[in-house]
Design a protein around this nucleic acid. Structure first.
Length: 422
RNA sequence: GUGGGUGUAGCUCAAUUGGUCAGAGUGCCGGGUUGUGGCCCCGGAGGCUGAGGGUUCAAGUCCCUUCACUCACCCCA
């Protein structure tokens, strides 16, 4: 009888050895570029008090209402696995008074996020995000800069088929006016709306704009547009953002129907989509959140940021060839005496930073050679009792098949020199 | 939470109307060279056909249940 095997949790994936080189490349590219733009890494916990997310993301959002992994700690405190990073970063920013040492703070972080949704293509319950936040600068230039950096990052990874959409969501002065106008408009045509949208009217009327149902689409087409309701300041801000983007030669589309799912966004909102993905085609999204830091108990500092979905991003990357483990040199030893020498030699080489490999199972030379080949080793060292008697070893160049004898004495130095010289 | 699709070897997939149908390729291990890799040849291990029940002389194949995976809605990265 076999034991039932334990599998990973639904929607939570392993990143296997063959995939990690891509992840490394993405992470490294992000670090390099963001740091060039003056951003520093901050690492925040993956767990927070539930109230942080309730307040930071919004009580009525889907995330908080039904997607959070929340549990009671042993002392009865409610904790939550983070569904996004912004709230945590702001919490840390406030908690450590980062605004005191510099009026403008640029931070990035990356790691796993958790949302309990039904998995599908490009959507997981544990997924990874690269997150960027810029605090203390309300200038439209910072909006444009952050968007530019995001696009530059994506383009550096040779991702094609990208589209950038931007919108302005207004501020606490003009958004409520717009919101009311939308509700008034929709009330007259409730019968033409899908059930979801009728529900949205109460919960979050702006979300109706996102609906893909055709009948709703025609209703929405005639609805008031946020851009017509922006106050003078917001209008000015938006127009300057656009002008900066034009200066930077970024192509974008204005999508007046884009409303982001998180309650805290103000003014600029943006989203990058890819044609390479399925229904979940949003690679990155972000926007300005000028009231949020204060709302979470900090100083009245403006902020703007974005998140990039790493799984989705990697799915857009051109496929990489399979990579396996590799070695600079393989040591094939025959017999106990040779194995013992080989063992020490292997570890010593590794201590010197050389990727040496050997096999402990005492298999035939043929098997060991196959192993050396599989590991793609440049050289193989071969020796058994015969060589030990003669105080030498065979060194085989795996590409040229040339084989030479090396004295057993000072072997470590000889091999180190040989490989360091490559 | 609601729909659709799919579950056969580690992986990718075969198996006529239910009737030697449990297979191939690949990967893994070994042999062909009693001490020399890639190519080639040969051999081997590995599956209660997702699980449970039912129909039938007979079920991978039909029916029911369940689970898993997957795509889509919802929502978002």
């Amino acid at each position: 009888m076999t034991m039932e095997k334990i599998t990973a949790i639904k929607g939570i994936k392993d990143i296997l050895p063959k995939d990690s080189p891509v992840w490394h490349r993405v992470e490294l590219t992000a670090r390099r570029i963001f740091e060039c733009f003056g951003f520093c890494e901050i690492r925040v916990p993956i767990m927070e008090k539930t109230s942080l997310f309730q307040r930071g993301i919004g009580e009525t959002t889907d995330i908080v209402e039904k997607e959070m992994y929340t549990f009671r700690d042993r002392d009865d405190e409610l904790l939550t696995l983070r569904p996004e990073a912004t709230a945590s970063v702001i919490r840390a920013y406030i908690e450590h008074n980062l605004s005191a040492s510099d009026p403008v703070t640029r931070l990035y972080t990356m790691g796993p996020m958790f949302r309990r949704e039904r998995p599908q293509k490009g959507r997981f319950r544990q997924f990874h995000q690269i997150d960027v936040e810029l605090f203390g600068d309300e200038s439209p230039a910072s909006d444009a800069e952050v968007i530019f950096m995001l696009m530059h990052f994506l383009q550096s990874l040779n991702i094609e088929n990208l589209s950038l959409e931007i919108n302005s969501l207004g501020c606490k002065a003009c958004r409520p006016v717009f919101s009311r106008a939308v509700v008034d408009y929709l009330k007259g045509q409730e019968s033409s709306l899908c059930p979801d949208c009728r529900r949205r009217m109460d919960v979050n009327p702006l979300r109706v704009f996102d609906c893909k149902v055709e009948s709703c689409g025609s209703v929405i087409a005639g609805a008031p547009r946020i851009l017509d309701f922006l106050c003078a300041d917001c209008l000015e801000h938006f127009s300057r953002v656009k002008s900066y983007l034009n200066e930077l030669k970024l192509t974008y589309e204005i999508n007046p129907r884009m409303v982001r799912g998180l309650d805290y966004y103000t003014r600029t909102a943006f989203e990058v989509k890819s044609g390479e993905l399925g229904a979940q085609n949003s690679l990155a999204g972000g926007g300005r959140y000028d009231g949020l830091v204060r709302f979470l108990g900090g100083p009245d500092v403006p902020g703007i940021g974005f998140g990039v979905g790493m799984e989705r991003l990697i799915a857009c990357l051109p496929p990489a060839g399979e990579v396996s483990s590799s070695a600079d040199i393989f040591i094939a030893a025959l017999g106990e005496r040779a194995q013992k020498i080989a063992f020490t030699l292997t570890q010593e080489l590794r201590r010197r930073g050389i990727c040496a490999a050997m096999d402990y199972s005492g298999k035939s030379l043929k098997s060991q050679m196959k192993r050396a080949d599989k590991l793609n080793s440049a050289y193989t060292l071969i020796f058994g009792d015969r060589e030990i008697e003669e105080n030498c070893v065979e060194l085989r160049d795996m590409n040229s098949k040339n084989q030479q004898r090396l004295p057993l004495d000072h072997l470590l130095e000889a091999v180190t020199d040989l490989l360091k010289a490559r």
